[in-house]
């Protein structure tokens, strides 16, 4: 049995289960804490520090990173008081310095009412804030083609040795989750190019629309074969046709009730 914990977020009384992450608890209670590296489908990274909040516990106050802060006891939380606004402004300023061309940072600053110092935006300048969301997505999907490489000022997101990775399946999840759209990819009718590799597209077996790469589809089929050994392999279906197929199955199942 899990324990229930009471907490107050921005004056609103809430409850959660012991160990739930603060950012998610706030979200469930209608309070959206600004964030950049956190993604609903992945575990908290605590990398961007945009989601910092003030936590007061038994009269003692401290600033925590809400996406990786488990609520363990009764606390009072402030997600946008003056102190937090100032600190979050500092965090966003540093992120903007790191990646002056990252639109995501500018948008986040505008959304949270923070004025960024004017920075010289250079053509082709950096857009990556090194949050690692892409790496996390790649690992979560079971590929792991990219990683955070080097450290300090030379840190970057790259494939091993900067070479096209044999583990990459061209699913494009890294580019999809990137909060600053900093991963370059190119998609045509026939191919998808990312991390220095070109992938052939897989067409839907019903409508013929290219919907993923052949490598990503083969990867999914192999994963399915592992989860359900002996199960019938699904034909390649795009999202739309896949939904229709499921709907038809459900409709047919109804007939026999």
């Amino acid at each position: 049995m899990s324990e229930t914990v009471k907490l107050v977020i921005d004056g609103k009384p809430c409850t959660c289960e012991k160990g739930d992450y603060l950012l998610e608890v706030a979200q469930r209670n209608g309070i959206r804490i600004p964030r950049m590296c956190y993604h609903e489908g992945l575990s908290g990274l605590g990398a961007c520090r945009v989601c910092i909040v003030e936590v007061v516990e038994a009269g003692r106050s401290r600033v925590v990173t809400s996406c990786i802060y488990p609520v363990l006891s009764e606390i009072e939380v402030f997600t946008q008081n003056e102190k937090i606004k100032e600190l979050r402004g500092m965090v966003l300023t540093l992120l903007a310095r790191l990646a002056p061309n990252a639109e995501g940072v500018a948008k986040m600053a505008a959304k949270t009412g923070i004025e960024l110092p004017r920075l010289a935006v250079k053509e082709g300048g950096d857009t990556c804030i090194l949050c690692g969301r892409c790496v996390s997505a790649c690992e979560a999907l079971g590929s792991g083609a990219i990683a955070k490489v080097n450290r300090g000022v030379t840190k970057e997101i790259a494939t091993p040795y900067g070479e096209p990775s044999s583990e990459c399946i061209g699913c494009g999840s890294c580019a999809f989750v990137c909060p600053t759209d900093s991963i370059a990819s190119e998609r045509t009718e026939e191919s998808f190019t990312i991390w220095g590799r070109e992938f052939e597209m897989q067409r839907c077996s019903v409508c013929g629309m290219p919907f993923t790469t052949q490598a990503a589809f083969a990867f999914l089929q192999a994963a399915q074969a592992e989860w359900e050994p002996g199960a019938e392999q699904q034909p390649p279906l795009c999202e739309e046709c896949g939904k229709k197929a499921v709907a038809r199955q459900i409709a047919n199942a109804g007939k026999y009730l």
Binding site: E139, G144, A147, V149, N150, P160, S165, E167
Partner: peptide
């Protein structure tokens, strides 16, 4: 993953 090993080796 190879990427993780490469990350360690460069860190």
């Amino acid at each position: 993953r190879e990427g993780q090993l490469y990350a360690l080796a460069t860190f």
